[in-house]
Write a protein that binds this DNA or RNA. Structure first.
Lengths: 218, 218, 218, 218
DNA sequence: CATGAATGAGAGTTCATTCAT
DNA sequence: AATGAATGAACTCTCATTCAT
């Protein structure tokens, strides 16, 4: 019950948490082992004791994040039995995850603009898995005749790109408003509003025009 | 008799070009002055002679890119007098620019996921300018009653996010297809197809349902 | 119920044995406590528990080797009552020991080229003891008029230097033959052949020309 | 004519010289780049600027030494047209070189007891070259019927082993005399005496007994 | 305009050693 | 007796930057 120093699990988690924060704030290269050690209040060598090297720590950080989000989304997708519901769940869950782990979007964006320089394999698979989930929803929708034919990859990036950029540019957009008040940079938008708007937009794109049946004149 | 390279202008341009390539490929931190000097076939000290320091060179690179794209888009926008045409011009021009300067998307994405750590001011303004252009188009469309009310920032990021991510993930998506053939990662999509699809999607979102005029019952 | 390894004695011996191997293969500095622990399948801290520190372990290793060889040679020397026999015994025993403990020559050579940097005292005495044994043989031979006057230190190093170098350069000499087949690097020589040849050579140097008594002219 | 800072040749030579000293005194591992930089009065980074890394510096040091000795011995060997003279030249030159470059023997011994861990190729060839020189002398002597058949590698190591060990153990042997005055550790022997004695010894081993012609009784 | 030489300040990593259990 | 956790001090190597020519 004591404060328990020397608990590997706790120490490791603390390191990972701080590393996540720093990596996302300053990028992989600009984050030093010293930074992480200081922030985590452990000796620098301990990082190497647990993670072998900086890349190993980074891999650990990313793998944790990716595993978590995939699980959350897969779970959320069970919610509904109709494609629209699933799509909404996908967007909402991703948005909420980006809110909960605010470092994730920056890390993901950086990773994607890197050709996957650092630790590719496991992350690569995780990213594909994520895309698979969405792709399946779209396919099912098409099969049921309620989604138009679409290019899944583009839809996927419309969703991820938008959420990720909105999350990472938060401070930037706030600053922009101060510079030019006439511009609406969505600086006060909540993550839920964003998710909602985004869903509406994507739905617009996908749904087949069902005017026909509505327009029963006379 | 002296070593005297051709021309300062030419040398400078060569440095900037190579720096752009390297910065986008490896990121700001991982790109060294030695890298750039070697690639440009000039002496390292010359870089400092011309650009004062690494950040100065980076600023130079970015400012060139941003100036160019803003100009191109502003120019393209003059094409048409209707918001749909302008929107299409915006998307097309951005997409074509991303194709022409394939390092730009990675640099922009990195910059955006950074809270704007490196050289903010000038770039910040340029980015805002870009957003302004789109924002104005949307406003005009709304005013004319042909666009629905939208959140410009979200539309903006749907466009930029999608194009940038598609461009930067090119190799990654190709690799993905080899891993899982059942997945369509748009690995063969041309930039023009992408722009076209994207425009169609965005249009879907924006255009007001013109059922009204069609439904002239009786 | 405790983990309790068999026996302290056994564990200690295992550590010493592996340390010997590693020290001789990679040198003192390049051998880490981790290496030794891993190889010996014990916890690193145990090494410090038993030997206080790395130097202590090294001293232990060396002292064991030196004690053993001195004893073997002293024992072997009892064999004969004539200096030639003793000399042969000295060379043979040393050679056979170098074969039995193939790490010893490298360790000794390194130690000798070091000004005795690591743990000098005990080893220093042991080395002197070894030299004493040979020196005494030579003196006795001289006293009996069957050995020429010689410089014992030189004879000593001719013996040790040759055997040690031949043993440590084994692999190198094999490789040399592959490079230049015309060169005879003694790559197939057995330790016994070497000892035999060496003895013959040294004998040549020491024995007084006994032509005198043979040549009884007229 | 001025003191000339910024003269690459001079600076490089200074670094090599000091590195040689330190490597031989403390061994490769125990010598740090900081040591060398401090001793050479240059910035540590300069070492890496010139030699790429520590191993590169070491290789440079060794290659210089080996090239020099091979040249000196090859030159000396031209002196005479008879194998005995050449043999004497070989031994004398090696001994004098060991005196002139007192770090060489320690470095060589360490290298030989290492299986050639550091920078093998060039050094390996140089070592073979040295052996070739002696081997040729012996072969010529045999062909002319003035040398007995011998094992060249053993003769070679009797020479190198003895000289190297005597040079490196200088201080050790002096100390030994203080401990035990009855022992003659050759602590006052000059390098020339050593070379002379060694030559006499080796000659003893090689020369064919020419008693026959001397014993012309009556 | 252009360059090779030189440097200071770190960054990543290793390792002997100790602590707590 | 034995171990996993933790650390401090170094060490190799890198890099932005400056100097001297």
């Amino acid at each position: 019950m004591a404060k328990q120093k020397r608990d590997a699990k706790v120490t490791k988690a603390k390191i990972i948490q701080n590393a996540m924060k720093l990596f996302s704030q300053k990028g992989y290269d600009a984050t030093t082992a010293d930074d992480i050690a200081r922030e985590s209040d452990v000796n620098k060598a301990l990082i190497y004791y647990y993670f072998k090297n900086k890349a190993g720590l980074y891999a650990n950080v990313m793998s944790g994040l990716f595993l978590a989000i995939r699980e959350e989304i897969a779970e959320a997708d069970k919610c509904c039995d109709n494609p629209f519901g699933e799509l909404k769940a996908f967007i909402d869950t991703y948005a909420r995850y980006a809110k909960k782990e605010p470092f994730f979007p920056a890390l993901l964006l950086r990773e994607l603009s890197d050709n996957g320089a650092h630790i590719p394999d496991m992350m690569f698979v995780s990213m594909l898995n994520l895309f698979s989930l969405l792709s399946d929803i779209l396919k099912r929708g098409e099969a049921q005749g309620i989604f138009k034919k679409s290019t899944p990859m583009i839809i996927h990036f419309m969703i991820l790109g938008t959420i990720n950029l909105l999350v990472t540019t938060g401070p930037l957009r706030k600053k922009a408003m101060e510079v030019d008040v006439t511009l609406d940079t969505c600086s006060e938008c909540s993550i839920d509003e964003i998710a909602q708007t985004l869903y509406t937009n994507i739905k617009q794109i996908l749904e087949v025009p069902n005017n026909a049946k509505n327009i029963t004149c006379a």
